[in-house]
Design a protein around this nucleic acid. Structure first.
Lengths: 248, 248
DNA sequence: GCTCTAGTTTGATTTAAATCAAAACAAGAT
DNA sequence: ATCTTGTTTTGATTTAAATCAAACTAGAGC
């Protein structure tokens, strides 16, 4: 199974029945029109998986730093350490999503990735991807789309600048919901893997503010909060009231 | 046939002496070891320039929507229009920088780009770039680096989340300064092309807050402000006090 | 069961930025 | 020059979020 993210939008393969909803490279590539042989080349690339235990860092796992990593199972957060020691969370990543797109331009510092639960990733040496992409233009094109989408995703964070705390949190929840749905998980009832503090860091708010925003949304009946378990009671209302979240 | 020498990260081409500091595709490619013929192929691509007058939009200029555009002269801002009609500024772009990396994943909405002064861009049809990249791997790799750097740039905006108004403004000024320097303009004394409101939108602040932050920095002797003209008096102090800005 | 720790919730207070408002300023057009 | 119009500055006030602080969970390990 492979990165959903490596899939073009219309090859959404609605019915992936594997326990975890990430799709295989094979599934990824067939719709693009690859030959069986070509697909074979790719399969061999991604067949071995690396286990990363909860709390472990990705780049400490002995993997090549200049590789992309596709999350197969589990959940990651990425962050940068600032000069003053504070940790700025830059993203959360679920199965099917790609880590390491920022490391290609090696001259700039990159994020650290840490597993928020026991996870598995597969490694995609970047040089190899470029090589294969040369012989399979559609795959290369697809990869460009993934990178572009990452740019759009990051850009979406700018929209938070104009929002109040509650709106930011809703945008965050809607975004998670959307991504869970895309991967085949329940979009209305899910477990947060990260702490209030990590959410706050990501959204530019303090943990107490996150907590209060959760409570407020529950008072209003829009969501149910039980520690890390979240249920969205009225997603339409959430969407209407707080604008469409940036979709991944 | 082709020298496979990967473009080293120091492809920074320190000495670009053309009047405007944008680097031509030729200058961009020669250090990679392209043959004259290959460079010729590229040159023909970018030789015609499109003029965009102050206030005009890029995509309204009759250019192909699925092209990248390289700013040759002038200055652009990009923004997205939100449902409620508010305009969120997503970036500012000076000569040598690439517009349209977000449009590759066409399924997601993209930014609008508008010229903040009379400008020129050259067009780079994306399909063509992919085609050429297939025969010139080092060029493709370089393009990947550019995309990756854009991701890092956008990510840098997340760091603003933890900053106060004054710090955000300094980070912004240092970032501009760094980019001006890179393009051969004066890094300590420059004209802002955008309004206080546009800066505010970009940084997640109101225009009055931007104005006050400018005044404060001037009181402290760190900068001189005269309407749109800015002089950085003590860039080291700025850097120390406010942390290193995200470098492009 | 208990203890210990990390995480969460809630309250009281302070502070930074938004908001409301008005004046000063600059650039163009006439 | 004057009259626009749009931008910037500064002030007074309000408000949202940060901060400080304490109580309350939930889990992990014993």
């Amino acid at each position: 199974m492979l990165p959903h993210s490596l899939m073009s939008k219309n090859c959404n393969i609605p019915s992936i029945k594997t326990s975890c909803s990430s799709c295989s490279l094979r599934e990824l590539c067939l719709p693009v029109g690859l030959t069986a042989q070509e697909v074979g080349t790719l399969d061999h690339l991604v067949n071995q998986r690396h286990k990363i235990r909860r709390g472990e860092h990705l780049h400490r796992a002995g993997l090549d730093f200049h590789s992309l990593h596709v999350v197969r199972t589990g959940f990651f957060k990425t962050y940068v350490l600032q000069e003053d020691g504070r940790e700025q969370v830059t993203g959360f990543h679920m199965p099917g999503e790609v880590l390491g797109l920022d490391a290609i331009s090696a001259d700039t510092h990159t994020c650290n990735a840490v597993a928020l639960e026991d996870s598995e990733v597969c490694e995609l040496p970047f040089a190899k991807l470029e090589g294969i992409g040369r012989t399979i233009p559609s795959l290369m094109h697809h990869f460009h789309k993934i990178m572009s989408r990452e740019i759009v995703r990051e850009r979406g964070m700018l929209l938070l600048g104009g929002m109040k705390a509650g709106e930011r949190l809703v945008a965050f929840l809607l975004n998670l919901s959307h991504r869970f749905a895309r991967r085949g998980y329940s979009p209305l009832d899910f477990n947060l893997r990260m702490t209030r503090e990590e959410i706050g860091s990501y959204l530019g708010l303090k943990l107490e503010t996150i907590s209060r925003a959760f409570s407020r949304l529950q008072e209003d009946g829009l969501i149910n909060v039980n520690n890390k378990r979240i249920r969205l009671n009225d997603i339409d209302h959430l969407r209407r009231q707080y604008g469409s979240s940036s979709c991944e």
